[in-house]
Amino acid sequence: MLKIKNLVSGYGSVQILNGANMKVENQSIVALLGGNGTGKSTILKACSGIIRTWKGSINFNGEDIQNLPPHNIVEKGLVQVTQGKDVFPAMTVLENLKLGGFTLKSKQTLNDNIEKVFNYFPRLNERKSQLAATLSGGELQMLCIGRGLMSNPKMIMLDEPSAALAPQIVLDIFKNINKIRKDGLTVLVVEQNVRMALLLADYGYVIKDGVINVEGESKKLMYDESVKDSYLGGGGTTANV
């Protein structure tokens, strides 16, 4: 579904990605792991067109999408969900969701999609006429994911859906991500909560210094010594889930 080949990119004149290679299969959940500042989010931003791709190619559904304007990439069905708090605080939950479906042409599809999102996250239905600024952290994350689903995407890319949330809420959101996959979407998750992400995902990539360092089936990856050493705190049992 998504193939990234030798991706080189960065901010301004600072190069972050030094030739990353990735592949996301159709209807799978893929986890992209790594420490701070290794380029996880940069890959997502390059895919969604917010920053320019310097070298290499990004192929989505057989089409090269590198350096297309961001709204065209959304129209092709690739949507990035940014970290938790990126909503429109002065608008209601419903308006936020409507903005998510901005590329939709028909009003009927828009309303159907709003229903669909409320099915995944019933909490949003209760709060639909509140301003987004009044939501709690977990609800904001639900709103962000819901907004991403509004445009009928084929694949969504989630940027740290578990950041700064209570474990119970993280579990709830991850269950919903699994449900979204079962309904036919492809998911790419960027995470710092490595253990949780590997439990959810089918396949994992570990990024280090702008290149993919380790990759493999997530079950294998969980017992991989180098991953354990770098990200799971060595002991394995002591890492908190």
């Binding site: 969604s48 917010i50 961001p70 959304v74 990035q80 940014t82 903005l99 998510g100 901005f102 907004r147």
Partner: peptide
Amino acid sequence: VISNLVGIN
């Protein structure tokens, strides 16, 4: 940035 991500030109 968020406007870009929701598909606004």
